[in-house]
Structure formats: structure tokens, C-alpha cells
Amino acid sequence: MKVLLDSHRCQGHARCAAFAPETFVFDDDGFSRVREGMEDVKPENQAGVRKACANCPELAISIVED
């Protein structure tokens, strides 16, 4: 499973940080990006990433299943 984040869509709701803080990181302007090396989601992080995807108000997060 891979996770992608469209940073142009991110409006800083920070819901992804609530559900998958190990995968997403916020810059000083409050916009999210996928942490370096975390694009391939480890099994233990997948449930959180799915919740982050489902809860993003801008639908900026997409998941590519293997």
C-alpha cells in the first residue's frame, strides 16, 4: 500500500496528524506532507492511513493498494 498527498489541496485541517502521525508531518505553514520514506505504508500503519484518508476534508490523500 502506498500513500500520496496532493499538497495543493491541503488546507491544514490536520486530521491526518490525528490518525497517522507516524506517516504525515506538518510544515510551519500548517500544510501536511508524507514523511520521507513513509510513502510505502507499513502494515502496522495502514489502518491509521486509511482513517486519515477517509477524514481529510479536502480529499487530498489517496491510497494505492498493492
Binding site: G12, A14, R15, A17, A18, F26, D28
Partner: peptide, 13 residues
């Protein structure tokens, strides 16, 4: 005007 702080709160930081 501080989504980055809300992100930290939600991440438990």
C-alpha cells in the same frame, strides 16, 4: 490561524 499547532495537538506532541 495555526493549523500546524492543531496538527501537533492531534499527533500528541
Amino acid at each position: 490561524n495555526c493549523p500546524e499547532l492543531l496538527a501537533q495537538v492531534q499527533a500528541g506532541l
